[in-house]
Design a protein around this nucleic acid. Structure first.
Lengths: 248, 248
DNA sequence: AGCTTTTTTTGATCTGCGTCAATTAGTGAT
DNA sequence: ATCACTAATTGACGCAGATCAAAAAAAGCT
């Protein structure tokens, strides 16, 4: 599977992995849809699978009316808002298996914009078209509750860990979080495609670009990670955990 | 309504306010329960109203099995976890109208401990006893989805704002958040009972006790707030908003 | 009340990281 | 390949806020 940008060496090419349906966050809902008996009121086309999204394209925009939930199949995205000084602020990254847009379930509008960091693909679930009553509706509701609950729990962890940590701890935790999320979805947890820019990471972690750069090279020099362009290989998982304190 | 600690002057006494049911986060669910037709499968005692909780008592503990969701009727609580160095970390505060324990919906265990900051009262909703099917189940599911969605949206805002702000901005935002939440629930948004200690605030905001103290007195000296013991009166809402940048 | 313990405030250093500035590397277009 | 432009790295410096230390205020005892 080719990548967006053309890199000379195979080593430097991000392995563009696709998450298996069974490991995807949308799977509980997909299963309901797949196994729904005919006449359950679920129309065709409610779920669009593997929509391709080119690098740089907006998947959805802040304040747009809430229409759909997306699941990342391959590639990656960043979520952003803008503060009063109109400068962009990165508020999250989405990796294969992650759900995008769940916040709209309460607010009816998306609370951030989402842009593809590389050529990616998503599955799109139309909310309007979901069945309005019946057994499959209950099952879908249950699945949504679980998904939202997970998001609450995860956000909680992220907030907690980020606020109280210094720059080194934040970056260690960030790398581990990428690795862990890849692992959970059944993807490579040693080699990570750092598709986002240093500025994106800095904005997300509340640090300066320069600090991110400095600490990444520091980690590299201490043989905690190997870093070639945008491919990051975790060399010493234990050491990173010890640094990040909030190991898991 | 008497307060826990005995303060001499009436001015220094926190007005111990109780949130109206109509303004409470649990209300959507309470309504379903109240108006459920007989035979809907909803047992008696599923909802315990106005449970009193003495100051300092644990409402629920980290890793305990998830049994119930609580709504704060009056008083306040703090949520805490512990990092590896076994020092306490405050991860949130609950005010009248707020829901406690929603994170358990996904994880089956509470992800933090919750302790009463003053004599408080809560309503307790037993999750096990909720109807397993039918119309009222669907209504409850819907309500839960909305609640969780709101929590996701709010957490998002908090995270975003906290991480990128300096100490002054964080504290301004914190005060405004308390005021806004009081306002939303129909309570006094000028006079806030700061039931938590400076250490709690510091831990929550990722600052040192001393910094919180210094900046609060700075705000006091600039006539942004009036501060007597644990009663905080917002004097210049606009100035605080301008400070916090992420005004709303 | 008086005594003890905890919390808060205030002051004096010290340092991590943001900011500014300059260099190098990477990317895309012709 | 060359040029132009953006992203990343590296260095120098200053300040916001952590840390250490001590006094003052509040709260909880008997």
């Amino acid at each position: 599977m080719p990548r967006t940008c053309c890199l000379p060496s195979a080593e430097q090419r991000t392995p563009h992995q696709e998450v298996a349906c069974s490991e995807c966050g949308l799977d509980p809902i997909c299963q309901v849809l797949d196994y729904a008996e005919p006449g359950s009121g679920i129309p065709e086309g409610i779920l669009i699978r593997r929509m391709p999204i080119p690098r740089g394209e907006m998947l959805l925009a802040y304040n747009q009316p809430f229409r759909a939930i997306y699941a990342v199949k391959s590639g990656s995205f960043k979520a952003m808002t803008w503060d009063l000084s109109s400068s962009e602020r990165v508020v999250g990254f989405f990796l294969p298996g992650d759900l995008i847009g769940t916040d709209g379930l309460a607010t009816d509008c998306y609370s951030y914009s989402v842009r593809a960091l590389e050529t990616s693909s998503v599955c799109r679930l139309e909310i309007e078209a979901l069945p309005k009553s019946g057994r499959s509706r209950e099952a879908i509701q249950d699945a949504l509750i679980t998904l939202l609950g997970q998001e609450v729990a995860m956000n909680h962890m992220v907030t907690t860990s980020l606020i109280q940590q210094n720059a080194e701890q934040r970056i260690a935790a960030f790398i581990l979080s990428l690795a862990r999320r890849s692992g959970i979805r059944g993807l490579n947890r040693q080699e990570l495609g750092l598709s986002m820019s240093r500025s994106d990471i800095a904005s997300y972690l509340g640090l300066a670009r320069e600090t991110v750069s400095r600490i990444l090279t520091r980690f590299h020099n201490s043989n905690l990670i190997e870093l070639r362009k945008h491919l990051l290989r975790v060399l010493d998982h234990g050491a990173l955990e010890r640094l990040s304190v909030l190991s898991e």
